[in-house]
C-alpha cells in the first residue's frame, strides 16, 4: 500500500512539473516579447510610416493593412460560416450531405497555411488576375477561417434551448423567422467568439498572406492594392536582419493584439457560459 502511495506521489509530481513547465513556457514567450518590445513602442512607432526599408520609422501601414485584411476576410467568411452553421443545425438532420459538409470542414481546418498560400497565389492572384492585393489575401484568409466560424457558430446555435424554437413555431413562425428572431440573437455571444478567434488567426497569419496580399510598404488605398500585414512586416524585419529593435517592437504589438483578442473572447465566453447555466 505504501509503495502504491509513493508511486502515486512520484507520478503526480512529474505530471505537475510538466504542467508548470508548460505554463512557464507561456510566461516566457509572452514575457520575453513584451520585455524586449515594449520599450520600442511609442506614438511615433505606431502612427508613422516606415523609413529606410523599415530600419527606421513606424508601422502604420502594417497596422492598417492587418486590420483591413482581417476585417475583409471576416466580412466574407461570416455570412458563409453562420449560414452553413444554420443549415447544419436548423435545416437538416444528419444525412450524407451533412457528413460531406462536415468532412469538408474538417479537411479545410487541417490544411496548412502554406497550401492556402499556394492556392491563393495561383487562383486569386494569377488565375483571377487580382494581383497581390488585399482582396486576394482576404479571400484566402476567409477560406482559412471558415471552419472555425462554422464550428463555433454551430455550437452556439445548438446551445439555444429547443423549447424556444417549439414555442416560436407553435405561434406560427416559419423556420427562418424562428432562426432570425429567436435562435441567432441568442447564439450571438458564441458567434462573436468565433469571429474573435478568426480575427486572432488572421492577425497572426503569415505564410498564406505573403503570397497573396504581397508585402508592399505603402498605405493601401483600395482593396486592389498590395499591403503588408504586421506579421509579414515582422517576418521580413527579422528574417532579413533589417532591424532587431523594430522587429521586437512589431512582435510586441502582435502579442498585445493577440492578448487583447483572447482576453475579450474569454470574457465573452464567460458571460455566455453563465447565461447557459441559468
Amino acid at each position: 500500500m505504501n509503495a502504491h502511495r509513493a508511486s502515486q506521489r512520484v507520478a503526480v509530481s512529474i505530471l505537475a512539473a510538466a504542467t508548470f513547465l508548460c505554463l512557464a513556457i507561456v510566461a516566457f514567450v509572452i514575457g520575453f516579447v513584451l520585455e524586449k518590445g515594449l520599450p520600442q513602442l511609442s506614438w511615433e512607432f505606431l502612427f508613422t510610416k516606415p523609413r529606410d526599408m523599415g530600419k527606421a520609422g513606424g508601422i502604420l501601414p502594417a497596422i492598417v493593412g492587418t486590420l483591413a485584411l482581417s476585417l475583409m476576410a471576416i466580412a466574407v467568411a461570416l455570412p458563409l460560416g453562420v449560414g452553413t452553421a444554420v443549415y447544419l443545425a436548423e435545416y437538416t438532420r444528419e444525412t450524407r450531405v451533412t457528413k460531406v459538409i462536415r468532412f469538408g470542414t474538417d479537411c479545410l481546418a487541417g490544411i496548412p497555411s502554406i497550401i492556402f498560400g499556394l492556392f491563393g497565389y495561383i487562383f486569386f492572384v494569377t488565375t483571377l488576375k487580382m494581383g497581390w492585393s488585399l482582396i486576394a489575401g482576404a479571400l484566402t484568409l476567409a477560406i482559412m477561417v471558415l471552419p472555425t466560424l462554422i464550428r463555433t457558430s454551430e455550437e452556439a446555435i445548438r446551445s439555444v434551448p429547443q423549447s424556444w424554437r417549439e414555442v416560436s413555431m407553435s405561434l406560427g413562425a416559419t423556420r427562418w423567422e424562428t432562426v432570425r428572431k429567436v435562435v441567432l440573437p441568442n447564439a450571438l455571444p458564441g458567434i462573436v467568439t468565433g469571429v474573435m478567434l478568426s480575427f486572432g488567426r488572421s492577425i497572426g497569419e503569415t505564410a498564406a498572406v505573403i503570397f497573396t496580399a504581397g508585402s508592399s510598404f505603402r498605405l493601401p488605398k483600395s482593396a486592389f492594392d498590395s499591403a503588408r500585414t504586421l506579421a509579414v512586416h515582422f517576418y521580413i524585419l527579422a528574417r532579413e536582419g533589417i532591424s532587431t529593435d523594430k522587429a521586437y517592437g512589431t512582435a510586441a504589438v502582435l502579442v498585445i493584439a493577440v492578448l487583447a483578442v483572447n482576453g475579450l473572447t474569454y470574457a465573452l465566453m464567460g458571460g455566455f457560459m453563465k447565461r447557459k447555466a441559468r
Binding site: 434551448p161 423549447s163 424556444w164 417549439e166 414555442v167 416560436s168 407553435s170 405561434l171 429567436v182 440573437p185 441568442n186
Partner: peptide, 12 residues
C-alpha cells in the same frame, strides 16, 4: 391553433 407547453417557456 395555439399551444401552451407543459413547462412554462417564455422566450428570452
Amino acid at each position: 391553433v395555439g399551444m401552451v407547453f407543459a413547462m412554462p417557456v417564455p422566450l428570452p
